[in-house]
């Protein structure tokens, strides 16, 4: 396996805010049921408060298609997570 070059970000570069972070999600019929953020224990999703879909850049080879879920964890914490249909992966994102 060859690693990505991962060139260091210089001070001249723009650093995007609110970049998505990969999370492990177990889903039932497409609906998230448990969530595990990196380095933390797995948590149950108590309720799904909102759902919306974002489709952008449909003219590109790899359009951005996401389904966002605003979820309430069993700890009472509210989070925005989304399923990236292009990458088939789950991510969390602040201010989603």
């Amino acid at each position: 396996m060859v690693k990505a070059p991962g060139a260091a970000q210089g001070l001249s570069t723009l650093r995007p805010l609110n970049s998505p972070e990969h999370v492990n999600v177990q889903a039932k019929n497409g609906w998230p049921s448990t969530l595990q953020v990196r380095g933390a224990a797995s948590r149950e999703i108590a309720s799904i408060e909102d759902v919306w879909r974002v489709e952008e850049e449909w003219w590109r080879d790899a359009p951005v298609v996401r389904t966002y879920f605003e979820v309430l964890l069993d700890t009472g914490r509210r989070m925005a997570i989304f399923f990236d249909h292009g990458k088939s992966s789950w991510y969390s994102q602040r201010h989603g």
Partner: peptide, 19 residues
């Protein structure tokens, strides 16, 4: 923090850290 594409539906594109 600077607004880059505040109209974007993708949150990570709305704002960026600028030196």
């Amino acid at each position: 923090i600077r607004e880059v594409e505040p109209w974007s539906r993708l949150p990570e594109r709305r704002k960026a850290l600028v030196p």
